[in-house]
Simulated assay, not measured.
Amino acid sequence: MERSAMQSVTLSLFRFGSVAARLWAFGQMATARFALKAIPEIQTFKLCGSGSGEGFTPIPNTAVYAILATWPDHDTARRAMHGQQVFRRYREMADETMTIFLTPASARGKWGGKEPFQPQDIEVGEPIAALTRATVKPKVALKFWGQVPDISKVVGKDPNVMFKIGIGEVPWVQQVTFSIWPDKKTMAEFARHDGPHARAIKAVRDGQWFKEELYARFRVDAVEGEWEGQTPSLTEKPKTATPDPIEVAAE
């Protein structure tokens, strides 16, 4: 089902319940990078916290943390995640964990001055995952976050979004939004609809609020683990989703 020699991108989410576990996870934001750097097969990785509510807020969610990583292929990723102590320890400490396996189809921009994703010549199919990463200029951070609560409400109410989460490396200024949609058409309709999201994008572009940005699209290949008590069916398009996907430009 999965193809070799194609870069694997994994998003691993961990939910911690107890105060002790949350303190441990917070500490790992500083210390886990050493163990991850020691994994020979890992290409790049990012340790991230998350936002509260729908995830797209400046208020941190102290229960949820994420590891975004890239690998030579899915098989290599799985072997490392099940064999390396750092990932085993995260699973042991967490109440819930879920990993989404992705293949990059397109990417534009940079992350920390580098291009972490290697787009493959593939048909994305259905569903489609979107990732936006940006470094917000500190002087406009308050303006930027003034737009976000309205966007968060719109995303949360959208019946088509299959999964969404807001994560980030540094609170307030380095943010990542990740979402999964039934197809390109529904994702495009949300992005282009004249509402809080479209107005925020226009404000960002007009004001040049971002110091650095990256937009990427992925094929969703597999999901392992549970989130909110169940394993989301993210690799299957809902029956109510809009058919006939169309191409969509990055936000």
Rank of each mutant, 00 (worst) to 15 (best):
E96C: 04
A134L: 11
G83T: 04
R88N: 10
A80G: 12
L102S: 07
G109C: 11
D75M: 06
W111H: 08
L131S: 07
K143G: 14
T62Q: 14
Q85T: 12
A77C: 11
K143T: 13
W71V: 11
Q85G: 06
G83H: 01
E126I: 06
T62Y: 14
A130H: 10
T99S: 12
L131C: 05
D73R: 02
A129C: 13
G112H: 02
L102W: 00
T62A: 15
T132L: 05
T62L: 15
A107V: 05
D75P: 05
A134Y: 09
G113S: 10
Q120M: 12
H74L: 14
D73K: 02
V124A: 15
A141Y: 04
H74E: 13
T103R: 13
E92P: 02
I128Y: 00
A80Y: 01
G112N: 06
R91F: 03
K137P: 11
R88D: 13
G112R: 05
K110I: 09
E126N: 11
P119T: 02
W71Q: 01
I67L: 06
V86Q: 11
P72T: 04
T62I: 13
T62V: 15
R78L: 10
A105L: 07
S106F: 02
L102A: 07
Q85R: 11
R133Y: 06
V136C: 14
I128C: 04
P72F: 00
A94S: 10
G83I: 06
T99P: 05
H82I: 01
L131R: 13
